[in-house]
Amino acid sequence: MKDTHLAERVDTMTQLKISARHVNVHYGETHAVKDVSVDIDANSVTAFIGPSGCGKSTFLRCLNRMNDTIDTCRVSGGIRIDDEDIHDRKVDPVQLRAKVGMVFQKPNPFPKSIHDNVAYGPKIHGLARTRAETSGIVEDALRKAALWDEVKDRLDAPGTGLSGGQQQRLCIARAIATAPDVLLMDEPCSALDPVATAQIEELIDDLRQSYCVVIVTHSMQQAARISRKTAFFHLGSLVEFGETDRIFTSPEDPRTENYITGRIG
């Protein structure tokens, strides 16, 4: 059943990147994500929206198995990336996370220099053999994150000394530097001011060309501005998933409509 479903999708214009089937997540006694199935396309931006505590961030953290790091958390169901089951015994989460990058809600640069922050991923994954190669990767990542011009003269300055928006772009550069296919973003703008938010949104729009971007956001406007598809979560369940334009103009589920019109959330 599942395989035929996948086969159909591969034929279509957009390529399928991630497919999740019947994913459930339990935190101890709490059932945080309930039976979520969703397909995410490559080279596009997909937004997860919903009121806080609806499980959207938890589900996002399943996609690079970050939930493994929490003792009490149990994940069941199937998640396939490039048609490979990420829970397969042969899959090493370390390799998975190199392929699926993540940016967090609050900017979390390491207490190291800007250069070392970006070079960290390539270093541990052995992506560069020489110092020159490393500098190349760092520059490339900083350019893609639209930070290069602001920091190129002070690559040795501590990453923690940058402004909030710059720190977040540094974190994006850090994630890009490991050459991932997928970029997960967990409310990347919630700690930033409007100007910095606009910069990040512009950046995400550029990143769409080369990455599969999945973004969790609190802000419906943001989802509407940057994503092609939107998934609406409520109380741990995926309520509705579809083209962003359609979700915001003619939602099928009354709960989605209530949320969009501001009655819940």
């Binding site: 690079n64 970050m66 790091t69 370390v94 390799q95 998975l96 996370r97 190199a98 392929k99 990058g101 993540m102 967090f104 609050k106 979390n108 640069p109 390491f110 207490p111 960290y120 991923g121 541990i124 994954h125 974190c171 850090r174 994630a175 490991t178």
Partner: peptide, 18 residues
């Protein structure tokens, strides 16, 4: 040391010891 630091590193594909 804030958990966010650890998460940042783990999400880049570092092992725990790294």
């Amino acid at each position: 040391v804030p958990q966010a630091m650890r998460d940042g590193s783990l999400a880049l594909g570092a092992t725990r010891s790294e």
